[in-house]
Write a protein that binds this DNA or RNA. Sequence first.
DNA 1: GTGGTCTAGACCACC
DNA 2: GTGGTCTAGACCACG
Lengths: 141, 141, 141, 141
Amino acid sequence: MLETVNIHSDVAVYAQIENHVQFAIAAGDLQAGDQLPSVRELSERLQVNPNTVAKAYRDLEVMGLVYTRRGMGVFINKNVNASCRETVWKRIIGRLHEVVSEAKAAGVPLKDVREVVSASYGEGGDPYADTPLNLLALAKK
Amino acid sequence: MLETVNIHSDVAVYAQIENHVQFAIAAGDLQAGDQLPSVRELSERLQVNPNTVAKAYRDLEVMGLVYTRRGMGVFINKNVNASCRETVWKRIIGRLHEVVSEAKAAGVPLKDVREVVSASYGEGGDPYADTPLNLLALAKK
Amino acid sequence: MLETVNIHSDVAVYAQIENHVQFAIAAGDLQAGDQLPSVRELSERLQVNPNTVAKAYRDLEVMGLVYTRRGMGVFINKNVNASCRETVWKRIIGRLHEVVSEAKAAGVPLKDVREVVSASYGEGGDPYADTPLNLLALAKK
Amino acid sequence: MLETVNIHSDVAVYAQIENHVQFAIAAGDLQAGDQLPSVRELSERLQVNPNTVAKAYRDLEVMGLVYTRRGMGVFINKNVNASCRETVWKRIIGRLHEVVSEAKAAGVPLKDVREVVSASYGEGGDPYADTPLNLLALAKK
DNA sequence: GTGGTCTAGACCACC
DNA sequence: GTGGTCTAGACCACG
């Protein structure tokens, strides 16, 4: 249940926020009509500048995942669960294909690849373990 | 036989060059004593700034993979094949772990992951198909 | 017979209400002495904050289109039909000029512009079809 | 040949920049491979903050109209002329339809509408007269 | 209270 | 030189 953002990651903070929201929508943890935490609140919790959160929210709106009600807040759009899941999956599958192809080209034995897959996927515990913040917890609070 | 660099990629041009050299060394396609194309030549072929190629070569030298003979050119070091392969493998394994963990977090069934792995690894064809430039071809020319 | 406000629109909710009242007055659908729905009632019907409706009514009063009788409600003023129509027309003409100029700048052929005008003006049907709420219906109820 | 942005307009500065680029692409004045003025240069000319220009450029990249080459600048994408023109036209036609429908509903005579159209479209002079800045001039400089 | 916009200025990576 | 990111803080419109 991390509520922090990884400042030292190579992925931008605003991108981490966007990714987390996308994941949560794809997983069905954020549903149509749910309100995201306010820019100010989230920025305080994550210890980042409000503008950074606002940028993430704005991007999500451009992507069509959320909408803004002036003076009210930011909300999850309707009918985004399926499309969002598709988008997320496609991106992941694409990267998976890429890295596996590279592994083959580099001569990594298929056996080793399978082993890593099993080990990485088999790890128990929090499904959000690899994402740096748990926006869901904030939204549902 | 790509001889181009992907300028639309999100990975820096110099990094693409470095990666490709590392890859070729790990695969044994570039061996001790082999000469890399000159900065000028490669920069012209790839349509990139000479400084970019120079930076890549400099980085590779810092990594200990190549050495420079003033006035002669840049050459592959001895005994770098094994260490280079280890580096490349580690990086690939790391990314593999990352993407598989993400796949799990996003709810992609393990079955689908395995399927993609099989499909991607099983594909025949040019081992360089997924890398944007074929430095090997230039070096061996 | 829309009785809703478009919360996804880029025009403010209070402005949508004001516009609709102006429109209805200009069209003669709301006449001198007619009573507007109460703030509470309208806010409930439209599912918006009462402050929003109150602001719209206040603005309309400032414009001189309506007057408030304390404890009684809000009523349409006398002799506002003509001036209101002028206001509405001017606004429409202004926007029309704007969009046509843009069309020209963008290279839309005059022929196409005229065609759209004919098609749009020629369309029959509910004159309120393009306005998001039918305040008239509420007022006359 | 305005090279200024309208600070007091109701449309955001960054949006004015975006619109102008879209218009220029749609009109064929900015073509594939053309470089936009640098963020810093344009911000100086327009007397706005570099971040404002950067925001516009970033949005244009998200829209797929331009791409960024690190350290090099921002360039027009391929195959955007047609799609951009379609987008721009659709937006204009949509607004035209909207305003004409409103005009009809408000009782503006068709004759008057046609007259305004002729007057607005017939105006001679710079096709960019209604857009607040001439980015083209900067880009082609 | 909410988000939107803009400014000023910093630091970074890349070319 | 280029753009990308983030911070700090201001002002505004909206509800």
